[in-house]
Write a protein that binds this DNA or RNA. Structure first.
Lengths: 208, 208
DNA sequence: GTTCAACCAGACAGACCGGTCTGGTTAGGA
DNA sequence: TCCTAACCAGACCGGTCTGTCTGGTTGAAC
């Protein structure tokens, strides 16, 4: 969902071969972020070089270094954008629900939706984390995204009336992570359903 | 545990600054594997270059290319060695147990032991997978290791008398993966205990 | 003593990457 | 019309990476 009226909406058609049509084109920054999103997620932040990104975006090298401090900064911006997109998607999924238990299970339902998407290649933050040095700005975004997810599970566990909301939140987060790993390595949506089934049991045991 | 009498036992003191003493030294191949194990696991298979490995091993470049086809082959050998070490460690942990339920829980106890080790940095296969291209020989080793773990959980679930051993095995594997991710990102042994607690509930529900 | 295999040390080549710089083009506003 | 900002195209530099090659050393077998 693009609410910035200064920029036309980005068409995220995955298989488009030509870089981006020159009619009604986006700003160089927006095209760079779109190309980074596509290439970094598909092939890894380290495998993809600057040259590939600017070629895909149809942008000059100087434009990249005018909009970003360097490759690390572009990676950070890519991850930050993904983090906001994901958090917004989760919040939208939970918005029309009231019972905390339903919200928790809805998160796993959302995982099944995400895993079913044709271009899904696993959790972007896990994959990027493994490619980046500890302490880099990109890693901080990943850890921030992780912290947010953990806090969400703990808060929902608290609302469920769990005796130990921290412990239950940790357990639910565990299932969330495990589902992502399994989806990345094994493919399919089965892991989201398996995690949901375990979550139902765990909730029943922790929230009497 | 080194049972190969052809080679002296490798001293895995982590902070030793000198490469390896020239007395009773190992073969070039063994030293290369030891250095690869140390550096690849600590800093990533992609971040660490050939130069770093041969310097740490105290080995000439030509010796590397005489023992391995190239860097990819060295990475594959490193992962294959790790896979065998891990499988042997799990099998040793389960050897003196008879009840399948105890064996399953012992795997999570072993995770807690592993997570508590000072140099633990997460699952080597997950981290290496994220750094390698799909279809590479190293990736195949990782997927093989994953397949083995899955088969182990499914077999133990079957021995437990689960109605759906495949499903229960998948759920247990999910907890295993989630614990590894949480240990890598958050540190500590809490995730192994949390996964064990959920496993107890899941087993109780699936094996009446 | 000779031979041979395994090894060490390091120079070197070719490729690639991130980042800088120059020069030319376009569009819009004063 | 002129000016300015944003942009494109691509040469270029320094560094790093994998992998090859040459030459010298050691030690054990014969």
């Amino acid at each position: 969902m693009n609410t910035n009226i200064l920029e036309p909406p980005v068409s995220t058609s995955p298989g488009s071969p030509a870089p981006v049509p020159h009619v009604a084109r986006l700003s160089a920054r927006a095209r760079l972020l779109a190309a980074a999103e596509e290439l970094f997620y598909k092939e890894g932040v380290r495998s993809v070089g600057i040259e590939r990104v600017i070629e895909r975006a149809g942008v000059a090298k100087a434009s990249l270094y005018g909009n970003f401090k360097g490759k690390d900064d572009l990676v950070r911006a890519y991850l930050a954008e993904r983090r906001e997109t994901r958090q917004a998607r989760i919040e939208a999924k939970l918005a029309h629900l009231t019972a905390p238990r339903d919200k928790i299970l809805a998160i796993f339902d959302l995982l099944a939706e995400i895993f079913a998407e044709p271009n899904y290649r696993g959790c972007a933050f896990m994959r990027a984390s493994a490619e980046m040095q500890p302490g880099s700005s990109g890693r901080e975004v990943c850890e921030d995204a992780r912290q947010w997810t953990r806090a969400l599970f703990v808060e929902l566990a608290r609302q469920c009336g769990a005796a130990q909301p921290e412990a239950l939140g940790h357990q639910l987060h565990l299932l969330y992570d495990g589902a992502a790993v399994s989806a990345q390595m094994d493919g399919g949506t089965a892991s989201a359903l398996a995690a949901r089934a375990v979550a139902v049991q765990t909730l029943a045991a922790a929230c009497p």
